Computed example of a mutant assay.
Amino acid sequence: MRPEPFPWARAMAFGLGVLRLSPRDFWSMTPRELACAAEGLYGRATRAPSRDALAALMRAFPDGDQK
């Protein structure tokens, strides 16, 4: 299985458009630095719960009777 290519268009839109970096500053950043900037702005990304965790949440908080 091949890894997904780096999302350059999204990275450029974020760096140049949202952060308003100059092209020089954007291209001098590493992808990790750009990710840290995104985390500083939007917060840390969370992962989806595992199947077991989701099942436990569904047991703890059932939707009730749906008709």
Rank of each mutant, 00 (worst) to 15 (best):
E33W: 01
L41P: 07
A35L: 11
A60R: 12
A35K: 06
F14Y: 15
L41C: 05
A9W: 00
D25T: 07
R51A: 15
A11W: 05
L16W: 02
T46S: 15
L41I: 03
P49V: 05
R2W: 05
M58W: 10
S28N: 12
L54N: 05
G64T: 07
G43I: 05
F26H: 04
A38Y: 03
E39V: 08
A48D: 08
F14I: 02
A60N: 03
G43A: 10
F61W: 08
A48M: 10
P31M: 02
E4D: 13
A53I: 03
R32S: 04
D52N: 08
D25P: 00
M29W: 03
A9Y: 03
M12F: 03
A60K: 10
L54H: 11
R44V: 08
E33A: 15
P49Q: 09
A56P: 02
G40L: 08
C36W: 07
W27V: 12
F61I: 00
G15L: 00
P23L: 02
K67H: 10
L57G: 11
P62Y: 13
R10V: 09
M1A: 14
P31N: 05
C36K: 10
A60I: 00
R51D: 13
R10N: 07
L16R: 00
R44T: 14
M12W: 04
A48P: 08
L54I: 00
A37D: 06
W8K: 05
A9S: 12
A37G: 03
Y42F: 15
G40I: 00
